[in-house]
Amino acid sequence: MVTHTIQLINDGDDDIIIDPMGLGALTTPFVVGSLDFSLAKTIPHGGHASFAVQYTAPPAGTNDSQPVTLTATDVTHPGSVAVLPLTFSAKSIATDPGHFTIRSSLGGGSVDFGSVTLGMPQKTLVTLTNDGVIPLEFTDGGVTVLDTAGAALPSVTLTASSFGVAGVIYQPGESATFELTFDPATAGTVAGSVHIVGAQATTNPENTNVIEDVDLAGIAVNATTPPPTTPPTTPPTTPPVVPTTPPVTTTDPGGSGGSSTTTLASTGLAAMTPMLIAASVTSLGVLTLIVALAYRRFTRRERR
């Protein structure tokens, strides 16, 4: 139910009497409440009269509009009548006239930071959507973070916003955002709430601020140190086994007594050197044998 008080000001030069009978034309969902004027009361020039009207909202989405007419009789100059037409209109919505929804980027309508490692701050973006019918103003001063006892919670701070300190007015359907940062100094569980105030930006003095409190939670944990790792063990390597080839013996058939050399039966460039040396030794043995034969023949000729 919503109640509005309407003031009627006599801004003319004469005194008047206002007939309240016209208010009887109002029907449900409107009801006339208290009033301070009647046919027996004169309202002087510059004076005023007032009355209240209550509106009980029907199902959401219903529009109502009802006209009434008040008449004012001139007391100073009898016979003169002034007519004042009034129209009362209202629309039923699913929320209060001034209302906003809250959603965190961490998910849901609450602010839950989960587990946060010390030294690694966690941020979340909170979105406020004006889903009422009255413009709302948000400011940095209207967002406070409190613990369960109602004291300021230093581990969670307001670090950015779309409205700033000066504030911004958001029309119905528009959204505002602000950022909260959870940067705990010690390990442990944090619980509290985010207190948000939206000021109704209207000239109606009866409109009050819209206040919402959102649950807040978080867990601060110490950084974990990974266990030391053991370097992998390299198995010992066994040198390859090189097969050995038995030596091959060659005999020189020429000359008396002959000569023999031993070479390695091998392949590859590394074995060329011992093979050449062995060949040289064999040739030298043949040369020695030839010289010995010649010397013997020469000795025999001299004896003859």
Rank of each mutant, 00 (worst) to 15 (best):
V2R: 14
T3N: 10
H4I: 10
T5W: 02
Q7G: 11
L8T: 03
G12N: 04
D14E: 09
I16F: 05
I16S: 00
I17V: 15
M21S: 08
M21K: 04
G22E: 02
G24N: 14
T27K: 06
S34F: 00
H45C: 04
S50I: 01
S50N: 11
Q54F: 00
T56V: 14
T56A: 08
T56L: 09
A60D: 11
A60C: 10
T69N: 07
T69S: 06
L70R: 01
H77A: 09
G79T: 05
V81T: 12
A82H: 07
F88R: 01
A90V: 06
S92I: 11
I93H: 02
A94Y: 08
H99P: 06
R103H: 10
L106M: 03
G107Q: 06
G108L: 02
L118H: 07
M120A: 14
T129W: 00
V133I: 11
P135V: 07
P135A: 10
P135F: 04
T144D: 03
V145L: 07
S155W: 05
V165S: 12
G167K: 08
Q171I: 03
F178V: 08
F182G: 09
F182A: 07
P184W: 03
G192M: 04
V194Q: 02
V194N: 03
A199D: 14
T203R: 04
E206M: 10
N209R: 04
V210Q: 05
I211V: 15
D213Y: 01
D215L: 13
T224L: 12
T229V: 15
T230K: 12
T233C: 00
T251K: 06
T251L: 13
T251S: 12
P253Q: 08
G254R: 12
G254W: 08
G258L: 11
G258Y: 03
T263K: 02
L269N: 09
A271R: 01
T273M: 09
L276E: 08
I277T: 15
A278C: 05
G285K: 10
L287G: 11
T288I: 13
A294E: 10
Y295F: 03
R300D: 15
R301D: 09
E302A: 14
